[in-house]
């Protein structure tokens, strides 16, 4: 895939788990359900690695809709998507804060 179609750096790789549908993040070692474990790519070479991981996982029917998402890094180094659509995607419905990752991983964030 040509690099020009890519979103601006830095990026993370997110997808939906094929069998569960749940949003998952490439952590460098594999897919994680926890947004805080998303690996951030800051160079084109690192983004190439993420893209390839997504391609292979799609081919193995592990995930669908794998995509690189441009992010900014928060003060504590956490990647935050630049577009509001992906911010909802990695947190959950804004009208049901008891559901989705915002509910499940909130404690970790508080600890963190």
């Amino acid at each position: 895939m040509s690099a020009t179609k890519r979103p601006p750096l830095p990026v993370i790789l997110l997808a939906n788990h094929f069998l569960d549908g749940e949003v998952v993040f490439w952590s460098g070692q594999g897919w994680s359900r926890n947004p805080q474990e998303a690996q951030t790519a800051s160079t084109q070479a690192e983004a190439d690695v993420l893209e390839e991981a997504g391609r292979l996982a799609f081919a193995r029917a592990e995930v669908v809709d794998a995509a690189l998402i441009d992010v900014s890094l928060s003060a504590d180094g956490q990647p935050v998507p630049n577009h509001f659509r992906e911010r909802f995607k990695i947190s959950g419905p804004s009208v049901r804060t008891d559901l989705g990752k915002q509910a499940e991983f909130a404690k970790d964030q508080a600890k963190g």
């Binding site: 939906n16 569960d20 549908g21 949003v23 669908v64 995607k89 959950g92 419905p93 989705g100």
Partner: peptide
Amino acid sequence: VYLQLHAY
């Protein structure tokens, strides 16, 4: 069965 933002 659709794939939506957070899930199927």
